[in-house]
Every structure is written in C-alpha cells, then in structure tokens.
Write a protein that binds this DNA or RNA. Structure first.
Lengths: 255, 255
DNA sequence: AAGTGGTCTAGACCACGAT
DNA sequence: TCGTGGTCTAGACCACTTG
C-alpha cells in the first residue's frame, strides 16, 4: 500500500535542523498541523478519529496515532479516552496555568481581576519590531493593564500585538470581555498562542510603575519579558510584565 | 504468553492519583526505574537492549519500548540510535542547561567559574527541614558559593543538602573538583538530581549579599529558591540563589 | 555483517464515555 | 451496544553505529 503523500518536508519545528530523513508519521503530523492552522477544525472541536484519519491519509492507524502523540505532547490537541481527540483551547482552565506562572504565597491561584489602562494602535518602535520580527513602523497594538489580587495591584503588563492579526481590537472590546486575554485572542481574532519564551530579571520600580503598583520608588520588581508564538512559530505578541513579588512568586518546574 | 510480573502497582510519579488501572508498560517502566534507582546500571552506562529487556520481562519489544519512551521523556535515560539506551548523567554538556537557566545578554552561556565560601555540617533549621521533608535537627550540609562571569560575581548560592546522603562532603572535596556540582553529587555520592521546583522573586541586596556580589545596598536581585528531587521524588537539596541580572537573564520556555 | 534503536503494519483486545 | 482512544503483540523492514 503506497500512501499518497507530498514529498517529505521539514517539520517546521524550532529545532528542525534539516533532517535527512522524514518518517511517515511526521509527514502525517505536518498534514494535520496544516489543517489545524487552516482552521479546518476549530479550538475545542474534535478532530476526526484515528481510524478516519488513517483512511484519509492511506496509512495505518498506528502511524496516525504516533503523529497525534506528538501533537498532544506539544499541547496542540488533547486526547480524551472514549470521546476523541480535540483541538486545544485556552478556554480550558488547565491551560491557563501554562502561561500564568504567578502564584500567591497563601491561598489559591485563581484568575486575577484586571483593569485596562490603555489600548492604542501605533507604528512599531524599533525594539518591538525586532522582537516581533516585523518591519519597523508596521502597525502594532499596544495594551497596558493591571492585574489585581485582593484589591491590590500586583502585575503591570505592557503588551504589543502584531497589528495585522488584531484588526478591530479596541479598548471597548477588551473591557466588555471577561475572558482571559489569550482566550479572547483565540475566539475573536483566531490567533492561538502555542508557546512562549521568557526572559526574567529583577528591576526596581520607576516613577510610573511605582505609582501604578502602589509601591515606593525603587521597590524590587520581577520583570518578565515574553515573546509568544502562534502556529508555524510566528511571533505575534511581545509583552513585558512587572510583578510585585512580596505576596506572590513565579513558579517554575525544571525537568 | 503470560508475563511473570508483580501485581499492578502505582507509578510513583508526582501526579499519580491512585490509577484504577496500570498498563503493562507502566509496570515494566517501574521495574526499570527500580533498577536505575538501585544502581544496577550507572549513569552514562547503557541499559540492556530492548530485545534483552523484552526477554527478561517476558513481554513484547513494543511494550518495553513504550516503557523506555516514557523514561526518555522524563530524562532518566537517553536513546542513541544504533548504539543503545543510556542512563542519563549530568556529565553531558546538554543536561547542564536544564538546571542552569541564567544566560548572559551578550556572548555564550558557558560554564561559570566559582568560588566556595563555606561548607559546614549542622542541624537543619526548621524551615530548611520542612522544605527537605526531614525532621528538624537532622544533619544537613550547608554550602555557600559564588559564580563569576568575566571576573565579576553574578550568583550567590546558599545550598542545603540532606546530610545522610552526603557523608564526607567537605570544603576540600568541593575545591578539588572542577566538575559542576550536580556532576560531583552524582559521581561521588550517587545522588542524581532528576527534577526541581523553583520559586522566583525580586528582592533587594542586603548588607551581606551586596558586599559579596559587589553591588550597592538595595540593588535588585533575582531570588531563585530551588527544591531538587532524586529518584523516587525524594527531595535532597534546597538552595536559594541570588542573581545579579544587570548583564544576565533567567531564560524560560512556556509550552 | 551484526546489533542497536526507529518506523510501519495489521489485528486483537481493553477501558472509557455516550446512547 | 457502539465508537473512541489505549494497550499489547508479532513481524518486517529501515537507519545508524561499530567492528
């Protein structure tokens, strides 16, 4: 049985260093990824069963299985025994904690209330453009917000979004929604965050951040710079968060 | 073919919540893990081939394969096509970066020269004992050291080790060795670090840390508290690092 | 050439969830 | 009861490393 497939192609993954050999299941994986990226199956929806996909691609179920295994490992899909395999979505509670690493010293993690301070469209400054891999001067959306814990401001986020992907994002749109940002991005703009890279530093509060976070000038803050990627490893968001870590900490697992 | 195996048992993993059903490959995985833990195969050495293990446990090669797959995912073993499967070791360059997340803004990561300030045995203070899950007053080893980058001190580490596991650890032993700490622990004391949990905060330099890190009083520092675990999820090390992040950052990948 | 891990297949059966 | 993903097997062949 000779599977009808395009010629072997690269995985597209971050560390794909021109593999000399592309096994069948990776080609299947690439095909499924393309369908995810193209929106054939939407976040939260089930993808076809392994049997169906095996028939579609003319390979054995085991090969489809191995392809889906990798997609599940990369959190692009979620398997549910007895029910099917579903496209991952930021609508799931569990997924939130992958990107929200700030935990209170005491009490439960829970979602933090927020307040948007600003939302404007502008031309990308040089440093932001470089991070987002777009040309300087291209349109971007800048969002500034505060996150609260027990009525006190804990996080100050400055967010830059690639303008082309977020047409129609306004302060009203943000304020109306009660969903987490990444959930909103996914449902309203079709932009799903897959992974992110962070650079963490200790800094001190300047005049502005001190006032907004209700801290004395010079108070220590955790600076978290994050570059987020969507399908195809395309950067679409760059943000810098300033965290007050007197009652919270940034949790990380090394394994 | 009826495999000769002990009755189904728990995985022992961190999130094993009394599974009602333990598949064969997990039982095999547990058996292999036990051999790793017991030192039947030492770090850096090859474990028996999949065929051999299949014969030993009286299961198919595919089942052994799946067990080893999980061990490889958890970084307990490393597969090398054409050569065999090897017990992971901190002697590999690549592994270092799993636990050393501090990167210079400019230049390569590379190993940082170090200086040991202190190494003494004492009875565990209450907070350290709690973190290490031992009784207060049990013997621990405290190590204090500095890490340098371009002749300047960047990291101040305070390390506590469970005394029972590190008999014979002295300042001389530390100074004589040029190997990374985890490599030394593994080769000299048979204690291999598997995973760790970190809590990260921004703090300010006090008198002591300011002097040691050659910084002004009140300079912002990254505080990284780490609890490290060995086989069987037993905590064996607790450390608090203070990082000067003016020329470095803590790198993290969310996925 | 021999031995290792890696891929692919086909089929049987199990556990789980919905009906 | 049915369809889903999950497990287990047995065998064939491929890719890589070493002798």
């Amino acid at each position: 049985m000779s599977p009808a497939l395009p010629s072997p192609e690269s995985d597209g993954g971050p560390s794909a260093a021109a593999p000399s050999f592309s096994p069948l299941y990776r080609q299947i994986k690439a095909l499924i990824t393309r369908s995810l990226q193209g929106g054939e199956w939407k976040p939260g929806e089930p993808i076809p069963s392994e049997t169906e996909l095996a028939a579609r691609y003319k390979v054995s179920q085991g090969t489809v299985r191995k392809a889906i295994d990798e997609l599940a490992t990369e959190n692009l899909v979620v398997r549910r025994q007895g029910k099917g395999t579903f496209v991952s979505t930021h609508a799931e509670e569990k997924v939130q904690f992958r990107f929200l690493r700030l935990m209170p010293d005491e009490g439960e993690a829970g979602g933090m209330p927020r307040r948007f301070l600003d939302c404007r469209r502008l031309r990308a400054p040089a440093d932001v453009a470089r991070a987002l891999d777009i040309r300087g001067g291209e349109p971007v959306v800048q969002v500034r917000r505060l996150l609260y814990f027990r009525e006190r401001p804990i996080v100050l986020d400055d967010i830059w979004l690639v303008g082309a992907q977020f047409k129609g994002l306004t302060a009203e749109r943000l304020s109306e929604s009660r969903a987490p940002l990444y959930r909103l991005f996914e449902s309203e703009f079709g932009v799903r965050m897959i992974r992110a890279e962070e650079k963490i530093r200790a800094v001190v509060a300047n005049e502005q951040s001190a006032e907004l976070l209700e801290l004395p000038l010079g108070a220590p803050l955790l600076s978290v710079e994050r570059l987020s990627f969507t399908y195809g490893d395309r950067p679409v968001e760059w943000r810098r968060g300033l965290y007050n870590t007197t009652t919270h900490f940034y949790r990380n697992d090394l394994s």
